[in-house]
Design a protein around this nucleic acid. Structure first.
Length: 109
DNA sequence: TTAATGACCTATC
DNA sequence: CGATAGGCCATTA
């Protein structure tokens, strides 16, 4: 017996939010978790992207940690690849290799 | 099946 | 002020 089918899990919630990120902007796991209602869901957010069931649909490269640094573990072909992707969208990187959160930090809608 | 981990963040001592 | 532990959800072994 299945339970309710329209039960939207937090996972899908994360996907919806990540997919809603406008081009040229980025967000952090904590921000998404906060939008979900629990700031501690940040772990789930990272896991959602890790599973990446819709890698082609979910711009994981737009999601960075709270420091504005990209997760070196999730880079598909190298951190450089991600930097190029973000720069291609108009995101500027700092000399330290971090993203300028003050410039592209996206706060939900 | 149970158990433990994980691309994290926040709160507390 | 600095460091530590906890927490939440789903996936994987």
């Amino acid at each position: 017996m299945k339970k309710e089918t329209k039960n939207k899990n937090t996972f899908e919630r994360v996907y919806e939010i990540v997919k809603k990120i406008p081009v040229g902007k980025i967000t952090t796991y904590g921000q998404i978790a906060h939008l979900l209602g629990n700031p501690h869901l940040s772990q789930v957010v990272g896991f959602a992207l890790h599973s990446n069931p819709s890698q082609s649909t979910i711009p994981c490269h737009r999601v960075v940690n709270r420091f504005g640094a990209l997760a070196e573990a999730f880079v598909f072909g190298g951190i450089n690849e991600q930097r190029v992707l973000l720069e291609n969208e108009g995101i500027k990187f700092l000399e330290n290799g971090y993203v300028d959160l003050k410039q592209h930090m996206w706060y939900g809608d």
